[in-house]
Design a protein around this nucleic acid. Structure first.
Length: 557
RNA sequence: UGACCCAUGGUGUAAUUGGCAACACAGCAGAUUUUGGUUCUGUUAUUUUAGGUUCGAGUCCUAAUGGGUCAACCA
């Protein structure tokens, strides 16, 4: 009976108050409003989760609306990828995607309404003049000489702007608010500008385009959005958002701002991400090191893990930087429950079991996922010659080394217990072959040997294993906040070792049938994801994240 | 020389709205383990400062300090 009161974030509190007062008859409608001029990243994932999940929690829904009011930068290629990423994240919007450009006609009428009320005017000033008249945060601005134009004159000029009679940049429509406001955005903001450009949807229908401030709130209102959730940097726009709604006497959507989510070692600046792509620091927008949704997908981060992460990071109004640990913990948690275990040797060295019959291969039973009772089993080949990880053998081992070393017993996962008897070296002194004997009665699942070795190693059968490529990723930057240094460019922190390619890894042969995007745990190594660069005969895997490694810590200490 | 937002363990987020500061991640220690994984147990560590209101303040008020944001015909 005793139930802990669920704690609400501040947005949920506002919504519950609205629900309690029957505002909008209990209807909840949010929206996710990307501009189709780039790829979605982790910051967008956060905004998507907040908008879709809070609406859903209160029986509401969410619109997807492309904020396409600037034809210069926008393209349908982005529209398609944005929709793909949102769906992959696991969210679905109301009906068809919507576009601010669908409302160009209505917005034009709204502008005419404001002109008639004497609340908007056409200004012929140059951009420089307008900037100069704006003043500074410290000192008030000055009225434009064009502010005194009559309603009739404004109506005429605005219509002629729409009809294409004036060149780009020669005139703008401004709201008549207050040039002395301490809020710079209220100093007669520009509502429309002339741009004789092709728009990705409306083509050449329009040559005037509304600015963000005269498109966003109005679009919210047209759609009946009840709660317009956006990030804190728009907080100064809210008085203007409300001003337009009030003067236009249209549906009162409410803007609520939350703090953007920053994540250690990640950058989300569009300009900087573009630089990484254009200058080939990464292979593309979907490079597994990128903080884009497509990059994280290719890296192998499950959508569910990203959602959990955004959830756990919480929602508030204070600047924050989330530790990358939390993201990786969410990824591991999800993958631990769902990823199939397989054995892949990244840095192979040959191991010969001298008392195992030559030319004999037996097939051992292997559990696919100990965390998943429905995970099933598979058969893996075992023989006299195997490969094990080079770092799993040491000739002169320290006391707490539980792996293979002469004279010690160690188990091979799913197989037998071995006693190491020695090793050969090549001309460079490197280990070339390791020798061991096995205990035939120690076979996994029917072990009667009574031996309890401390260590268990992964391995592959030499005659069965297939070559594959493994791409090992490290942080893209060497510091947690590469964009935060005022003196140094973020590229100075680029981690040149962020990608290591292993081309001669050995995988168990069953992996040959995996599909792009399949997620695995390579036993004792970490989580990996099959990459689209794979070919039928040669698989490529991306390292998603390593396993927790308390041994590595101990070695360091 | 302005306005606005923010301030709780290392990092985030809570605190029944004025009543014993908690949860997660990270850290540390131990147990379990055919993955040095998982799981389990224990544990370290927190209200920016100064006033005020109050029986009682993380919460309300004032100020200070610190951090952030705002002056694109971008969104």
């Amino acid at each position: 009976m005793e139930e802990k009161r669920e704690s609400l974030n501040f947005i949920e509190q506002i919504i519950e108050e609205d629900l309690a007062s029957s505002k909008h008859n209990g209807r909840i409608l949010t929206r996710f409003p990307p501009e189709p001029n780039g790829y979605l990243h982790i910051g967008h994932a956060k905004a998507i989760c907040i908008n879709f999940e809070t609406a859903k929690k209160y029986g509401g829904t969410t619109n997807l609306r492309f904020d396409d009011t600037n034809p210069t930068t926008e393209d349908t290629e982005y529209v398609d990828n944005i929709m793909k990423d949102i769906r992959w994240l696991g969210f679905d919007w109301n009906g068809e995607a919507l576009y601010a450009s669908d409302y160009f006609g209505q917005l034009y009428q709204y502008a005419v309404t404001l002109i008639k009320k004497g609340l908007a005017y056409v200004d012929d000033s140059t951009p420089e003049e307008i900037a100069a008249m704006k003043g500074t945060p410290g000192e008030p601005g000055k009225d434009s000489p064009f502010k005194s134009r009559t309603v009739e004159e404004n109506l005429d000029l605005f219509e002629r702007m729409k009809n294409g009679e004036f060149p780009d940049g020669s005139k703008v429509l401004r709201a008549n608010v207050d040039m002395t406001s301490p809020n710079m955005l209220m100093r007669d903001p520009i509502m429309y500008r002339i741009k004789k450009e092709q728009h990705h949807r409306t083509g050449g229908d329009w040559c005037i385009y509304p600015m963000y401030d005269f498109a966003h709130g109005q679009s919210d209102s047209i759609e009946g959005i009840t709660h317009s959730l956006c990030s804190l940097e728009f907080i100064h726009h809210r008085p203007l958002y409300d001003w337009f709604i009030e003067k236009l006497e249209i549906f009162p959507s409410r803007q609520i701002e939350f703090a953007r989510m920053n994540v250690e070692y990640m950058i989300t600046s569009k300009r900087k991400l573009l630089k990484l792509v254009n200058d080939n620091y990464v292979s593309g927008w979907d490079d597994p090191r990128m903080p884009t949704i497509s990059g994280m997908r290719r890296r192998g981060y499950p959508a569910a893990a990203i959602r959990t992460f955004c959830d756990k990071a919480g929602v508030a109004r204070r600047e924050n930087t989330i530790e990358i640990n939390l993201l990786e913990s969410c990824v591991r948690d999800e993958l631990n429950r769902t990823a199939m275990r397989v054995m892949v040797v990244l840095d192979p060295v040959k191991l010969v079991i001298t008392n195992y019959p030559e030319n004999e291969i037996e097939y051992l039973d292997a559990e696919n996922n100990p965390e998943d009772p429905q995970g099933g089993h598979r058969k893996i080949a075992f023989g006299r010659e195997l490969y094990i990880e080079r770092e799993d053998f040491m000739e002169n081992a320290p006391p707490k080394y539980f792996r293979m070393t002469p004279g010690a017993d160690v188990r091979l996962k799913h197989a037998y217990i071995l006693r190491c008897t020695g090793a050969d070296h090549d001309a460079n002194g490197e280990i070339s072959t390791i020798y061991a004997t096995y205990y035939p009665e120690s076979r996994s699942g029917q072990d009667t040997s009574g031996i309890k070795p401390k260590g268990t190693l992964h391995w592959v059968c030499a005659t069965d294993a297939l070559d594959c490529e493994v791409r090992l990723y490290d942080r893209l930057f060497m510091v947690p906040d590469p964009a935060g240094d005022e003196e140094k460019d973020f590229l100075e922190f680029y981690n040149r070792e962020s990608l290591k390619q292993v081309t001669q890894a050995k995988m168990e042969s069953g992996l040959a049938g995996c599909k792009d995007g399949d997620l695995f745990q390579f036993l004792r190594q970490g989580y990996f994801c099959a990459d689209p660069d794979s070919t039928p005969g040669y698989k490529v895997f991306n390292k998603t994240v390593g396993l927790k490694d308390s041994f590595a810590k101990e070695v360091k200490a």
